[in-house]
Amino acid sequence: MSDVPEAEVDTNGDEDALLDWVEGQAAENMRFHVESLAVISKEANTTLTVLLAGVGAASAYTVKLFDTHGAGWLLAATITFGVCLLLLSAWLILGCLKISELPTPTNEPENLYQPKYSLSAIRAAEITNTQSRIHQVVRRNNKTADRLNRIRLLALLTPVIASVAAGVVAAVGVERHASECSPDRGVPAAAVGLLAYPDSLVGLRTVFAASGEAG
Rank of each mutant, 00 (worst) to 15 (best):
61 Y>T: 12
27 A>W: 00
120 S>M: 08
16 D>V: 06
134 I>D: 03
64 K>Q: 10
135 H>L: 07
106 T>H: 03
138 V>H: 01
156 L>F: 10
131 Q>G: 15
98 K>G: 04
127 I>L: 14
22 V>K: 03
102 L>K: 01
103 P>M: 01
139 R>Q: 10
112 L>S: 12
147 R>G: 02
40 I>L: 10
37 L>M: 11
141 N>S: 03
116 K>F: 08
111 N>D: 15
49 T>P: 03
75 L>C: 02
24 G>Q: 12
93 I>M: 07
56 G>A: 05
91 W>D: 15
32 F>H: 06
30 M>W: 00
34 V>A: 14
50 V>G: 04
119 L>F: 10
48 L>M: 03
132 S>K: 09
41 S>K: 14
156 L>A: 13
39 V>I: 13
76 A>C: 11
69 H>R: 15
139 R>W: 05
31 R>W: 00
140 R>S: 06
24 G>A: 11
52 L>Q: 11
27 A>S: 02
135 H>G: 04
42 K>W: 11
80 T>M: 14
133 R>G: 01
19 L>F: 07
150 R>S: 12
72 G>D: 09
62 T>Y: 10
132 S>G: 08
41 S>A: 15
88 L>R: 08
120 S>R: 14
149 N>K: 15
147 R>E: 06
28 E>N: 08
139 R>F: 07
93 I>E: 06
152 R>I: 04
129 N>K: 05
